[in-house]
Design a binder for these strands. Sequence first.
DNA 1: CGATCGCTTGATCGCTATCAAATCGTGTGG
DNA 2: CCACACGATTTGATAGCGATCAAGCGATCG
Lengths: 244, 244
Amino acid sequence: MRVPCQACPLRAQPAFHDKPDDQVAFIQAMKTDHLTFAPGDAIIRQGSRSAQLFTLFSGWAFRFKEMSDGRRQILNFLLPGDLVGFQNRMFEESPWGVEALTPVEVCVFARSRIWDLYRGYPELAYDVTWLTAHEESLVDENLLTAGRRSAAERVAMLMMHLAKRVAVLRPAVAAGAPFDIPINQSHIADALGLSLAHTNKTLKALEKRGLFRFAAGRLEMVNPKALARLADYFDQPVGQRPLI
Amino acid sequence: MRVPCQACPLRAQPAFHDKPDDQVAFIQAMKTDHLTFAPGDAIIRQGSRSAQLFTLFSGWAFRFKEMSDGRRQILNFLLPGDLVGFQNRMFEESPWGVEALTPVEVCVFARSRIWDLYRGYPELAYDVTWLTAHEESLVDENLLTAGRRSAAERVAMLMMHLAKRVAVLRPAVAAGAPFDIPINQSHIADALGLSLAHTNKTLKALEKRGLFRFAAGRLEMVNPKALARLADYFDQPVGQRPLI
DNA sequence: CGATCGCTTGATCGCTATCAAATCGTGTGG
DNA sequence: CCACACGATTTGATAGCGATCAAGCGATCG
């Protein structure tokens, strides 16, 4: 627990709503742990009963479901500020897992105090709902992608989506700067419902068309306009979001 | 507005949590309208700014996204008791649409009073979050289906899923009774990310294998065990759910 | 240095899309 | 009652996208 929530560097970012002191103080009081994970670590194990509830403080992770024969689908990527774990009911087996992509820090909250939050801090309660609904909208979009887009469209969509999300936290990316993207081709395959081999070929083809450069853990959007057109990507204006 | 919420026949069903009188009274006070739609009607139009917020009171509907060239993905089916519309931010364009499958009645709530709900009724606020999270888990599962399951597995999954959901409201279905299912093959195709022609062939093949009968708007699960095995379907225990 | 991991590429397969047309049931208007 | 239109379903032929299988490469690592 390096820093008190009142001095949270993530909260200081313009991407997030300002919060009154009492709410931040309550968040601080509700926080029970500050955990660290290494890349590849399971933060939540699918099928486990760990009643985790946390905010991703730093690093990247992803939420996924796995079938009994090993087929895996990434549901969405998790970036700093994302709230995770409210979805599963207390004491029920988690229907999905969460895995770290980079070194990750998470702020763990006491589920036992959720009730205090709803009773004492309706604004925070609303934020929890908002974050849940917002995450659902990401999954909605991913479902459209997996269900109805071609392989090239899927890849274009993912690149646009991730660049957009990173740009919220790092403004230079909005202007087209290359950025670190800690995923490999099998993550892309699992996120898009494609095979690894075909993902590779699609990636190469789009790079050859000059749409982006994706190598060595970095992504540069070379022609975002063309990517947006290819993916039929619609820009939802991004306002500030709540941070819990 | 036929019946006061205190006498709501839906609420009387065992599938839903009992609620203290004051909460039901607040729900009643928040309810501004009781609307009716015909099959095929748009309840929410994708891209519209209607700040709808409602509970499906009777009938079936579905939530979907459409691409600019007409490709459509059904995100999930809506059954009585489902809360819809919290997802989109107030006054923003809805990123998805809702369409009625049968004659539908919805209980419309005043968005302007959401804040009173969060401030005055933390239990209801928690219920809103729970319902949102629960809907997300449905979309999660559908994403796994569209991304990683074969055509036959997808169809098996959908049948299991819908039978399960209907069984909660109509116990006889749990025992294997046939039931009305107001969707046609193009809905199935759009829900599963398949073409219409291939949906038809897959449907026929599974019927020939004796797994279910699907005709004339009715579904009978003939061999649910085999369907569950085929779909790699995992039974989440269904407890009571909140109704708002 | 062997082993492992991620990436790349080619050959082939097959699942699913696409295209086309026929059938059937239903409702409508003449 | 019949003719017709229309939507939903069904079926067949064909094409192609993406999966599968296989192999090789390069970098990193214990």
